[in-house]
């Protein structure tokens, strides 16, 4: 009977695998990884505080910190964080030059904390 069986070894998050299980698997496979977390929001940001995005060295990611508009910039920062080992606090908003470039058009502002995963 299915259900309690082993999980597939695909390089994506399976339906039943949590983001943290994915992170543990990446680390067990020796891949550097970083975790991004929405730590504050103002206005109409699409994802609430606490939302996570996990990124591996090759830029594979699971989870989301926005409707998709800032993920690219967060993944880029995550790559730097993996290399330096130092966390970063990112801020995106409509009045922000970078946010225009990455397209945070929803009118909100969001702070994202990116930390390396040991």
């Amino acid at each position: 009977m299915g259900g309690h069986g082993e999980k597939p070894k695909a390089n994506v998050q399976t339906d039943t695998e949590s983001l943290f299980e994915t992170l543990r698997r990446w680390r067990a496979e020796g891949k550097p990884a970083a975790l991004a977390t929405v730590v504050s929001t103002w206005g109409s940001s699409p994802r609430p505080e606490g939302s996570h995005l996990a990124v591996d060295e090759a830029g594979h990611f699971v989870g989301s910190v926005s409707g998709g508009c800032i993920e690219g910039a967060v993944i880029e920062a995550a790559t730097q964080v993996m290399a330096s080992g130092c966390p970063q606090l990112l801020e995106f908003g409509v009045s922000d030059e970078q946010a225009w470039q990455v397209g945070l058009a929803c009118g909100g502002r969001v702070q994202v904390f990116v930390e390396p995963v040991e």
């Binding site: 949590s18 943290f20 299980e21 992170l23 680390r27 904390f113 040991e118």
Partner: peptide, 29 residues
């Protein structure tokens, strides 16, 4: 995030236990 914290979160989710992780944003402690 330390490996032990990551393991603790994954374990709590599996066991359906509540957990709170507090992070100091200045240095990630």
């Amino acid at each position: 995030m330390k490996a032990a914290t990551l393991a603790r979160i994954a374990q709590a989710q599996q066991k359906r236990e509540a957990l709170v992780v507090v992070t100091r944003l200045a240095d990630g402690a």
